[in-house]
Amino acid sequence: MVFMAVTGFAVARLRNLFGVVMLTGLFSLMSAVLYVVLDAVDVAFTEAAVGAGIATVLMLSTLALTSSEERVSEAEKPMWALGLVVVTGAVLIYGTLDMAPFGDAYAPIHHHVVPRYLEKSGQEVGLPNVVTSVLASYRGYDTLGEVYVIFTAACGVLLIIGRPKRGRRRTLRMLVGEMRHGMRQNVILRVVSKLLIPFILVFALYVQWHGDFGPGGGFQAGVIFAAGFILYALIFDVDTSRMVVPSEVTRLLLALGVMLYAGVGVVGLLRGGNFLNYSVLAQEQTAGQHLGILLVEFGVGLTVAAAMITIFFTFARQEH
């Protein structure tokens, strides 16, 4: 954690945005390690893939499109900002004074709602991974919302920069471009990655279906799947990879994913339960839950992968 703090300060000081982005990636990665230490394996998985992977790539593409150096402003150091931050921090510290000590098993947080998840989800939902049970079933509606958030982001990016202006000439200070150029030359990299990418995709599928039992699930799978494609695009060529997954297809998958999730909910509704009640999907409660979660997670994976790919390619296409 101390390392994270140091990284944070370094980000604040550093002017070279390229370095800043790299450090941010590092920051995410460290937090992921921390999550593992704190027993949050699912979260660690996601943070590593999303925070350290996708977000970093997006930031790098942005830098390539804009500028990689933060101008040193001669303006006075914003003291008000420092003051505001110190005050906010002080308030937060004040708030922590009445918190239960770290790791205290008797803290109220562990006693009101959660015991039921831990004790009963085995019978009610029938999955060993409690995180998945809560995510997809007990609080499945939140997750639906979350899928819609990423859906919104993908559509939004399409709307904002989906249509590059024609006839625009610009100097390409393309960090990513250069990186890609370097990598393209590197035969070893190309061969290794060609071998690696199928494995990444297979691994993504594994994470997708394994989420019920161990760490993993639709999110992680979707992100990893997308990461495979993005890697391909980085090493080979955006246009070729675009041909593998045309934008129409990703767009369709994007829509189908969210509709699958919401659709499962509606089916539950039609079969006499409330929205997102999976128990009514099959004769037996746990079987229904299982089926529902499987479908829903697939919807999540589909949307997340499609969304990530859409966002990345939209950014990447800007250069041309």
Partner: peptide, 23 residues
């Protein structure tokens, strides 16, 4: 497990915001 679930959601929200902001 509950905070883990919440944060999984929040991470996705975070990356969505980042993507839009960068766009």
């Amino acid at each position: 497990p509950l905070p883990h679930v919440l944060i999984l959601t929040a991470i996705v929200v975070g990356v969505a915001t980042t993507a839009l902001g960068l766009a």
